[in-house]
């Protein structure tokens, strides 16, 4: 779960670099469902983000 938090912290999209300029950092963004948790844990979804971070 800490990995998920780190990845959310590293995600530019969720930290305001999006069309609306909003931050999406709520707890539910990370853990609202098992599917979401799995998404955050999947390395394939965060390769670019981690490299950037």
């Amino acid at each position: 779960m800490k990995v998920c938090i780190d990845r959310l912290a590293a995600s530019k999209f969720h930290n305001g670099h999006n069309r609306d300029g909003k931050k999406w950092l709520d707890w539910e963004i990370l853990f609202r469902s098992e599917k979401k948790l799995t998404w955050w844990l999947d390395d394939d979804n965060h390769k670019g983000t981690e490299a950037a971070a």
Binding site: M1, K2, I5, L8, A9, W27, L30
Partner: peptide, 11 residues
């Protein structure tokens, strides 16, 4: 502990 980490890291 994870929730603390979340608050400190993201918030």
């Amino acid at each position: 502990e994870i929730f603390h980490y979340y608050l400190i890291t993201l918030k």
